[in-house]
Computed example of a mutant assay.
Amino acid sequence: MVQKPTPISSVRSRADNWTLRQLSEEALANVLSPYSRSRWFTYFVVFLGMVFVATRGVEWESLQLQLSELGAQGRNVVLVESAIDGAPATIDRLSCEALTTVLGVERAGGVSDATSQDFVQFGKSVQVYSSSTTLFPLLSRANILLGRSLLDLPPGEGSVLLGDGWSATALVSDMQPDGIPTNTAVLGAFSVEEEQLTACLVVLDPYQRAEEAMPQLLSQLKVRNHPVAASPAIRDLVNPVDQYLARFSRSFPIGIGLILGSVMALSIRSRSSEIATYRLSGTGRSSASVLLFFEALCLTGLFWLSGSGAALLILGFNLALLTILSELLVVAGVAVFISNGAAYLVLRRSPIALAKDR
Rank of each mutant, 00 (worst) to 15 (best):
S306I: 06
R93G: 04
L146I: 15
T42K: 02
L312F: 15
F252I: 15
R349L: 10
V128L: 15
A233I: 02
Y207L: 15
T42C: 06
A89L: 05
Q208F: 08
L171C: 01
V102R: 08
I91E: 05
F248Y: 03
R349G: 02
V120D: 05
A114Y: 11
S131D: 01
L145M: 03
V46F: 15
Y43E: 08
S125Q: 15
L280K: 14
P240H: 08
V77M: 03
A54D: 01
L266H: 06
A288W: 02
F303E: 10
I8P: 01
I91N: 07
L204M: 10
P137S: 13
L313P: 07
Q243N: 13
L315Q: 13
S272D: 04
F136M: 13
S95F: 12
I180F: 04
A29S: 12
L217N: 01
S173T: 01
Y207R: 15
S9T: 09
V223F: 08
P181E: 07
I84A: 02
E194N: 06
L217R: 03
L325A: 07
A98K: 04
I314F: 01
L321V: 11
N76Q: 15
E157L: 01
V192H: 05
Q3E: 14
A114P: 08
R285M: 03
S289E: 06
L354E: 01
A189T: 14
D152E: 13
S68W: 01
L218M: 08
D242S: 10
G123L: 03
F44E: 01
D236A: 08
Q22W: 05
S159K: 07
I352P: 01
R21Y: 09
V192M: 08
P215T: 13
S339W: 06
L322A: 14
S287W: 05
R141L: 12
Q121M: 13
L151R: 10
L245T: 01
A320W: 09
V120P: 01
L266C: 04
S231Q: 08
S132A: 14
